[in-house]
Design a protein around this nucleic acid. Structure first.
Length: 422
RNA sequence: GUGAGUGUAGCUCAAUUUGGUUAGAGCACUGGACUGUGGCUCCAGGGGUUGAGGGUUCAAAUCCCUUCACUCACCCCA
């Protein structure tokens, strides 16, 4: 009986994995330029970490987490991480990273798990590239990571995406806005969709995010969060905007943009693409100045983002297909004596760093050549009885069709010469 | 969780409307033409429980029921 993969979980097969490697490589490059350090944390955390940091009433915590009881006597509830920030902050606090160094710039790659209904750009195990900057309240840091993301998109060749920016205010000013919005909404509650009527009680800001025509209409002249920011938040956001203009980073101000997780405050942002279908966010993030303290650390501001890797891959995949690596040498043998000779030679070449392959089974010269061609080998070395006798093998450059003789007793030395490109 | 759509060869798809012989094509794969030299061309070959199970019928890929999977949308979000 065949066993299939779990719903919403996917394999990244040869042919597509090259694109992922490319993305990861470029991400490392950009993080290095911006002086970020990698952090690796567990996929499994205590459930409490997520319910505390994301918010008890978010959809993720309420119905999307993979949670189970540990087999230990204490039976603690454990959860496969649905996002990265909580775990990074937990590690930051646990290792007291703030003690030796006031500013930490961290990045990570890895899978996240949410039990949602799969669709385009949405899987139950999905990969994120994330970054967190801990220890600075400075708007220059907000601008820095926005520029980092922009640079990253530039070097992977992503285009057609747009950036939206907003400020959600802080614990000082958001309650005031919430109240004003609520006042506006309750007067018009009848014209809101049933969903939004529920949202009004739980998280009124989400009403602004509704796609329902009627709700869009009723919130058209709703108060804007940007008019309710306290002085400190207004200054902070103003400074971010100024830096955006100074660095010519194009964005659209979107005072209706809200975030799904409770810990966000002040600057929030989102990169979207119209080509992704309804899951159109490629990257998003924002500031979370209270989170470290909530998780038992000292008051420490933070700001970060996450990039959805399969969404990014989806967008880049449409542009061009990336090529699989090609073998540098394919050794074609004719006759069992030649095969016996070839096997250790290929082994030694591989040990010297050459990407090498040889013909398998008892196959004709022609079919081995065909296979070498299919794999796009750069060079083919042909060895048969004649060559064994004369001690000279035939080396063929598959691109130029040039052939030359190499002496078999010093074949490695000859092959490792510049011919093979090092 | 709700709704809609789609399941035929390794891949992309015909044949389903109107049930009718042995389910086809292109690409890919294997071999040959070219007995030890790749790509192009030509020829040949292998490969299918038509997602699965049941039903109707002389006859089912085709009609009906059940089920599973996938996809997209709602929702939510990276």
């Amino acid at each position: 009986m065949k066993i299939s993969r779990v719903k919403g979980f996917s394999d990244i097969l040869p042919g597509e994995v090259e694109l992922w490697q490319f993305i990861e490589e470029k991400a490392r490059e950009v993080f290095a330029r911006y002086n970020f350090s990698e952090i690796r944390i567990p996929l499994l955390e205590k459930t409490e970490l997520f319910s505390r940091s994301l918010g008890e009433t978010t959809d993720i915590v309420e119905k999307e987490m993979y949670t189970f009881a540990d087999q230990d006597a204490n039976g603690a509830l454990l959860t496969l991480r649905p996002e990265g920030t909580a775990g990074v902050v937990r590690a930051y606090v646990e290792a007291e990273l703030y003690k030796a160094e006031p500013l930490r710039k961290l990045f990570y790659f890895g899978p996240m798990f949410r039990r949602e209904r799969p669709q385009k750009g949405r899987l139950r195990q999905f990969y994120q590239i994330g970054a967190e900057v801990l220890g600075r309240e400075d708007p220059f840091v907000d601008a820095e990571i926005l520029l980092l993301l922009n640079d990253f998109f530039l070097i992977v060749g992503l285009d057609g995406v747009s950036l939206e920016l907003n400020s959600l205010g802080c614990v000082q000013c958001r309650p005031r806005y919430r109240q004003a919005l609520l006042a506006h909404l309750s007067e018009r509650a009848k014209s809101l969709c049933p969903n939004c009527q529920r949202r009004m009680e739980r998280n009124p800001l989400r009403v602004l995010d509704c796609k329902e025509e009627a709700c869009l209409e009723t919130t058209r002249d709703a108060p804007s969060i940007l008019d309710y920011l306290c002085e400190a938040c207004r200054d902070h956001f103003g400074a971010v905007e100024k830096l955006m203009r100074q660095t010519a980073l194009v964005y659209r101000l979107n005072p209706r943009m809200v975030r799904g997780l409770d810990y966000y405050c002040r600057t929030t942002f989102e990169w979207t693409s119209p080509r992704l279908g309804s899951q159109n966010t490629v990257a998003a993030g924002g500031r979370y100045d209270g989170l470290v303290e909530d998780l038992g650390g000292p008051p420490t501001p933070g700001v970060g983002f996450a990039i959805g890797m399969e969404r990014l891959a989806l967008l880049l995949e449409m542009k061009e297909t990336r090529e699989a690596p090609r073998p540098e040498l394919y050794l074609v043998w004719v006759g069992t004596a030649a095969r016996q000779w070839a096997f250790p030679v290929v082994h030694r070449l591989r040990r010297s760093g050459v990407r090498a392959e040889m013909g398998g089974e008892e196959k004709s010269l022609k079919s081995q050549m065909r296979r070498a061609d299919k794999l796009r080998a750069s060079f083919v070395l042909i060895v048969g009885d004649d060559e064994l006798k004369s001690g000279k093998g035939v080396l063929r450059n598959m691109d130029t069709k040039e052939q030359s003789e190499v002496s078999l007793d010093r074949v490695e030395a000859e092959l490792l010469a510049p011919k093979l490109g090092g």
